[in-house]
């Protein structure tokens, strides 16, 4: 028994560490005074005032940020997973001239994260804003296009690894039965790798919700902002203390979709993360 006791002890200690900030956010969100210096670790009162104030604040459009963020994150995670699973299907199942070169260049491109080119992305999109304002700065569409540009480089190699684990005999027998390449892709491959796709999409979703570097350059107008850009502005140097309550409320609301998806897919996450590791 004592052998298990130290295990509980260690884990409880770490659990305390992981819960302290979360508890603090919870208590700050419920704190009636809504300031940083009146927020304690444990709730000292319970009110939904901060939540109400968050949505009625005339200077900030939190609702809009939330919609923007969820839209960009959903659209870009779905589209980028789709684009990369398409490419992975070609690399995994077909043999064609340039396949090796293509795979190697993807490996090379993977080493150059897109956001490092932020300076030239800014220069390019200054030009795009002049020509096509709907896809330029202050538009979620332009940012979405940009995120899709990073899709293939990040996920394709991983996806190819997943697809390689699906036995080839399956699509061979389908081909014998007269299925086309599109039918094999939609009816056989996609359903089989769906759990892995879900995990990849979820990680992309969370990554996009948290993306700040490029979004901050792109979205300057208040109603075009995402949660990361907008809520960063909530805690500006002058109102760090007073706005903390509504900020904490916003944090909790933002956490709802991510935590929910996370707990729901928990089972697959471990296999999804480590499967990518086996294929280097």
């Amino acid at each position: 028994m004592s052998k298990l006791l130290w295990r509980h002890g260690v884990v409880l200690l770490v659990v305390a560490f992981s819960l302290v900030p979360i508890l603090f956010v919870l208590s700050a969100a419920l704190n009636p005074l809504g300031t940083l210096n009146s927020s304690e670790l444990y709730p000292t009162g319970a009110t939904v005032k901060n939540f109400a104030k968050l949505f009625s604040d005339p200077d900030h459009s939190f609702g809009r940020w939330f919609v923007n963020s969820v839209f960009i994150a959903l659209a870009s995670s779905f589209a980028s997973v789709f684009l990369s699973v398409c490419a992975a299907y070609a690399f995994s199942r077909m043999r064609f001239a340039g396949r090796r070169v293509g795979l190697l260049s993807l490996l090379l491109i993977q080493m150059f994260p897109q956001f490092l080119a932020i300076v030239t992305i800014f220069i390019i999109f200054t030009e795009v804003t002049e020509l096509y304002p709907a896809f330029g700065f202050n538009s979620v569409w332009g940012l979405l296009l940009l995120y899709l540009g990073g899709a293939l480089g990040v996920n394709t190699y991983l996806m190819k690894g997943f697809l390689d684990t699906v036995p080839k005999e399956l699509d061979e027998s389908a081909t014998v039965d007269g299925a086309s390449h599109a039918q094999i892709f939609w009816r056989i491959i996609l359903p089989l790798v769906a759990p892995v796709l879900a995990v990849t999409a979820m990680l992309a979703f969370i990554g996009t919700i948290n993306e700040f570097l490029m979004a901050n350059i792109f979205l300057r107008a208040d109603d075009s902002k995402t949660l990361a850009v907008g809520m960063f502005g909530l805690l500006g140097p002058d109102n760090r203390n007073v706005n903390f309550g509504i900020f904490a409320a916003g944090t909790l609301i933002t956490a709802v979709p991510t935590v929910a998806v996370f707990l729901w897919l928990q089972r697959y996450i471990v296999s999804g993360l480590t499967m990518g590791a086996v294929k280097g």
Partner: peptide, 21 residues
């Protein structure tokens, strides 16, 4: 579940929470 909660929370917001702590 309790241990992976920090991973599931929106990290940009939690960074700001830490800063203000």
């Amino acid at each position: 579940v309790l241990l992976i909660l920090p991973y599931a929370m929106p990290s940009f917001a939690m960074l700001l929470v830490w800063r203000d702590m």
